[in-house]
Nucleic acid binder design. Sequence first.
DNA 1: GAAACTATTTAACAAATGATAAAAAAGAAA
DNA 2: TTTCTTTTTTATCATTTGTTAAATAGTTTC
Lengths: 187, 187
Amino acid sequence: MEIDEIIDTIYPLTSTSKDLIKKSILQTKLPKGHTLFKANKIETRIYFIKKGIARAYAYSEDNQITFWFGKEGDPIVSMQNYVNNQKGYEDVELLEDCELYELKTEKLQKLFLEDIQIANWGRKFSELELIKSEERLISLQFNTATERYLALLKNYPSIIQRVQLSHIASYLGITQVSLSRIRAKLK
Amino acid sequence: MEIDEIIDTIYPLTSTSKDLIKKSILQTKLPKGHTLFKANKIETRIYFIKKGIARAYAYSEDNQITFWFGKEGDPIVSMQNYVNNQKGYEDVELLEDCELYELKTEKLQKLFLEDIQIANWGRKFSELELIKSEERLISLQFNTATERYLALLKNYPSIIQRVQLSHIASYLGITQVSLSRIRAKLK
DNA sequence: GAAACTATTTAACAAATGATAAAAAAGAAA
DNA sequence: TTTCTTTTTTATCATTTGTTAAATAGTTTC
């Protein structure tokens, strides 16, 4: 997905303001398996996915638990870093070869203070992420594992081809064995 | 909690900008049991809690599931209404007699477009809510019901005096019977 | 204080999920 | 293809949680 579409989908900007953002954006290609963010590190960048797919995970005891997937058009942000300039608790790993748009947080923060349109773009960005987060929260709290699995398939059918089931299981809040049982029952 | 402190804790404003917000704010007192927001309705206001406590809940089949508590200093916002001008899925009910600061969403939206400081205040507001939402999500996905219960007690000890256990149970994602068992084991 | 109502706990059984190990299937590499 | 490695499924048993119903505790009302 092209950067113009990504920016405008969040909040449409005049070309002057959009150019101010775009001037700060670089493009990079990174291979499958690359770790984009490390837990307990200050991250100074955010990304948007042009092509590819990624996951964020953290450790609980010894095992990784995936709590976020990102695909074309999605932002990759460590929120603790972005909002509070604090170390995050998550690793972000690329699950395919990726093309990314890269943006220094510091530059964006500066633009927020200089350009009211960009400030409102940043506001909308967080509002939309907040809606997504609340939806996930409700789905975890209200629905059974089977319902969450079916909803994921419905919202994002191709995830099953692109991401291995162990990651999907932990994203759903269950073990891989349990997901396997759910899938067997649905047949 | 006073409105100046609530506003400044989110993002400190010059008095000029703060006054612009405060000019749009009314104070109301509403009794325990009052329903502030109704599901499937367009809500045109947001609130901040000066005094009291509230919960947001939605229905799953026939039973209410509480997914949010707010206390002194917290905002009361139906996010679907606030962000997308769409009907929300939640009722918000006051659990004590409350004193609230009331603000028309429309007026705030206007200020966002006119005052860059307020736009950044609104940005920060959503960022902070997003951090809270992500923390809850992680706690639901990573921790056991017992751990979530203990964490809630630690973060907010007095909740146990102010809110009945059936609401706390559904907030934790379990039944009241299950919470009762957890409490019995902890003794 | 007694009665009525609401909230919380306890009990018994069913269903779902976790943990561990082993088998089967799928994919990658030689 | 054949071998090796990784991923997914299946099986078994323990633990947790859900469901329903009844008992207890706590509040409110008269």
